[in-house]
Design a protein around this nucleic acid. Sequence first.
DNA 1: AAGATTCTCAACCGCGGCACA
DNA 2: GTGTGCCGCGGTTGAGAATCT
Length: 296
Amino acid sequence: MVRAPCCEKMGLKKGPWSGEEDQILVNYIHLHGHGNWRALPKLAGLLRCGKSCRLRWTNYLRPDIKRGNFSLQEEHTILELHNLLGNRWSTIAAKLPGRTDNEIKNVWHTHLKKRAAANHDDSNNNNNHQQQQPTTKKRRSASKKSKTASVKDGQQTKPPAAAEEAEAKEEYSSDDVSSLTTGDNGGAQSNDAKPDDFSSTEEMDESFWSEVLSADSSTSTDHDFPAAELGSGLYDDPLASFVSSEGDGPGSGEEAAAAAAAAGLAHSIVDYTSMDFWYNLLTGDNNKELSELPPI
DNA sequence: AAGATTCTCAACCGCGGCACA
DNA sequence: GTGTGCCGCGGTTGAGAATCT
């Protein structure tokens, strides 16, 4: 089969998104949803291909995106899930509300991969008690995140206000947390163990999205633009976000089941940290494990 | 202080799967 | 059953900031 090109190469913009483009995309999806990504750019008046729009939305502009550094708990989750699932980033992302597969993939490649390798070596040397080493020897300063908020050729690539909030959240640098904890899963609490993290996230969402929503809050499409979730304790329940994300179109039944199980496990710290559980879930008696999950 | 190196992350690319005609 | 179009996923890249020497 001859695949049609993703987009006409002529006349379509590539590269970093400007704040104006972000605004156009957000406003359009807010008003109309994203029924057809391919047609969306034309309808919205964007000189981008649909793929690029979808990526920008799902990886950056979605209101339920949690920005900032990964908590120790999240890193632990990624490590364990990757150990079991491999590079199935979307499935892993389903376990981490507000995190995108792209973000998780980046985190993995930048430092978790090294940590996993180091842990493997440590375990081989029967010396694994320093599990949570700082992810890199060179620590980034708190201003690092502001980089992404910088202006590229006069184009702002981060949603307004996000940059400041990102800096504010820098205290939860995953590396910093890692370096401050003893590593015996001291952070293995549910995500609510970091209330400030979420509160700042909510503030970010509110500050940015309230501007957009204020344009026409009465016409939001609950499917594509969960405005009702804004500032409403979205992250109180990781499963809620998972269910929401599934609304866009679940993958295979098997994956959906695995992802659902993963999301459900967020409710159970003990199960979640159990490698045996994950092994059983993915390779063994799935039905039994699934039946034990908290009700959705 | 300046150049070199390392690191981060947004964005692109290509492929596979799925739905539909 | 086959062809086509769209979506989502995973791999990769490159610009720019942070850090080191």
